[in-house]
Design a protein around this nucleic acid. Sequence first.
DNA 1: TCGGATAGGGATAAATTTTTCCCCTATTGC
DNA 2: GCAATAGGGGAAAAATTTATCCCTATCCGA
Lengths: 144, 144
Amino acid sequence: MYERKIMPNLNCGLDLIGEVLFGKWKIRLLWFINEGYKRPSELQRKIPDASRRVLNIQLKELEEHELVTRKIFPVVPPKVEYSLTEFGRTLVPVIAALGQWGDENEERLRDVILRQVLNSDFGGTAKKESNSDGLILPVQVTFP
Amino acid sequence: MYERKIMPNLNCGLDLIGEVLFGKWKIRLLWFINEGYKRPSELQRKIPDASRRVLNIQLKELEEHELVTRKIFPVVPPKVEYSLTEFGRTLVPVIAALGQWGDENEERLRDVILRQVLNSDFGGTAKKESNSDGLILPVQVTFP
DNA sequence: TCGGATAGGGATAAATTTTTCCCCTATTGC
DNA sequence: GCAATAGGGGAAAAATTTATCCCTATCCGA
């Protein structure tokens, strides 16, 4: 496991929320779990651009931060279900506020971001169109 | 300059807001600019844990994303002032919501974060106490 | 019996972000 | 001439985060 070398700032509310919320896939995980997608494999299908590995890691962190709980069913094949904790549920309106601002300004944001990415920055290709099992293409991964 | 190799996801509102907001110091920069700290050197004093370089870089990105404007006064020594754009101002309530959730749960968050950082993770030291010019110690960097 | 589904972990590489260090602009004051 | 001031930028290193690849185990269905 990776060992931190620098202690994070935990001075104010914004530091703190950032520490638990700002992993690349965490917000989505919380969102989908809130929508009722409970099992790891479901979540992986909803977020096909993330590797299985990172999702596991970020789910574990969400659990350590007491935003989700992990229930293990002792059956074979194994079955696991995540749910939001009471604490985690208090985050839902906050995430909704983020998403709403993004949605309200969708066009403009796409515009300024692309302009910035394409100017001076970009030397790559678009992410592959997903190896998919026919369920969710990246382009269809949306939030309310 | 660093060249991106992977195109970011820009599918939904949450992707988009993340793209403009989730740099390590961006939220603070927006916050302090909103509070009236306009000049680069003021902002650097308010955020002593960030290197001058990153602040410049992140300020430039905020500008490219049309959240702040940069006004240059043609005087010597040079003088520059940042302000929020109209667009940037619409983010203020969103940031306030983030900060509020963090503040409301300050104790619990510090607790779970420290538990997670100290268990299994941490192999370093706390950030230096700032070389400071006597103005702002890290511990005093707070938001309303 | 082989292939797939389910859940997850280790090791390592790649990508990205942030920090460090050093240099440049021009003027004013000593 | 030299230092201080205010604002930046390049290059390279360090820190951190994500992605890739490979393995474990069980059971079901073809």
